[in-house]
Amino acid sequence: MIRVLVADDEAMVRAGVVGIVQTDPDISVVAEAGDGIEALAGIRARSLDVVLLDIRMPGLSGLEVLAELRREGIEVPCLIVTTFGEDDYIAEAMRLGADGFVLKSGDPLELVMAVKALAGGGAFFSPQIARRLLLGRDRAELDRATHARALFDALTQREQEVLRLLGAGYANAEIAAELFLAEGTVKVHVSSILRSTGARNRVEAALIAVRAGES
């Protein structure tokens, strides 16, 4: 039997969630909580397989409950039950170690699927949330590539040649041999590249070449 705690400050929503997940005979809601403080106490006091947390709750938010659990080393799988307009909250929940996200407005069967997935050691995302997370990641990658391209294009031609080889993993001596330069000259170019791009070290500089599509 999968033992679950459901935390939501809206009594009708909480009752609906409880009713939905308990349509599956393998799931038992052993505790409910109407705020974050009550949820945290209930989680600490019980052996649970999955916790369902609303994000916005009085006392402690679902994110604050999640953060405290992880700080205490309590690794019970946590499913965030969220509304559609909370992208920032979703990103923060992922950073804190949430194991899944389900939309309140989504298919009720997703709740059951999510609880079972988390109880089995997996993760679960409502399709709409998964799509938005992937699009956000793609946008971030595009932004990084665009920024890297601009940094690369601002370099001199010789610095670009040096940075391409840095991105390919060449050491200074190898760059010198490849470009028929003195090793000291290569070091000067590398220092200039770091200053111009704001990279803190050779690794960050190499990443710029890679993201710009030059290595």
Rank of each mutant, 00 (worst) to 15 (best):
L52F: 09
I74N: 15
M57G: 10
E72T: 08
G59P: 05
L69M: 08
R70D: 08
D54M: 11
I74D: 13
R71D: 09
P58R: 08
D49R: 08
R46P: 07
I43P: 00
V50Q: 01
V81N: 05
G85S: 14
A67H: 04
D49H: 13
E64V: 07
D87R: 14
A45I: 05
D49G: 14
F84E: 15
F84I: 11
E72Q: 15
E75W: 05
L69G: 00
I43G: 04
I80D: 00
F84L: 14
L48P: 00
I55V: 15
L52M: 15
G73V: 07
L69C: 02
R70F: 13
P77D: 06
I55T: 01
L48S: 01
A45Y: 07
G59S: 13
E86Q: 14
Y89K: 12
G59W: 09
A67I: 01
R56G: 03
R56W: 08
V76I: 05
L69F: 04
I90C: 00
M57D: 12
D87K: 09
V81Q: 06
S61R: 07
L48V: 03
D54Q: 13
G85P: 02
L63I: 04
L63D: 06
E75T: 13
T82R: 05
R70G: 09
G59Y: 14
L63T: 04
L63M: 08
P58Y: 15
L79R: 00
F84V: 14
E92P: 02
Y89R: 12
P77G: 05
I74T: 12
T83Q: 14
L52G: 07
I90F: 02
E86I: 07
P77R: 02
E75M: 10
D88G: 10
L66S: 08
R46G: 04
L79H: 01
R70M: 07
L69H: 02
M57A: 11
L63C: 08
G62D: 03
D88H: 13
F84S: 14
R70Y: 11
E86V: 06
P77E: 01
A91T: 13
E92L: 11
A91Y: 13
E86N: 13
T82H: 05
R46K: 14
R71V: 01
V76S: 04
R46F: 07
T83S: 15
D88L: 11
R56S: 11
C78R: 02
V51G: 03
L79E: 02
S47K: 15
E86Y: 11
A67D: 13
L48I: 03
A67C: 05
M57L: 11
T82G: 11
F84D: 10
C78W: 06
E92I: 00
I74K: 10
D87N: 08
V65A: 09
T82M: 03
I43L: 01
D88S: 15
V76N: 00
D88C: 01
R46M: 12
I43F: 06
S61P: 10
E72G: 06
D88I: 10
E72P: 02
T83W: 09
I74C: 10
E92S: 04
R46D: 14
V65F: 09
R71N: 07
L60C: 10
P77S: 03
D87F: 12
V51R: 00
L60I: 07
D54T: 11
R71C: 04
Y89C: 09
I43M: 03
V50P: 02
V81G: 03
R46T: 09
S61E: 07
I80F: 05
E72M: 10
V51Y: 06
P58A: 10
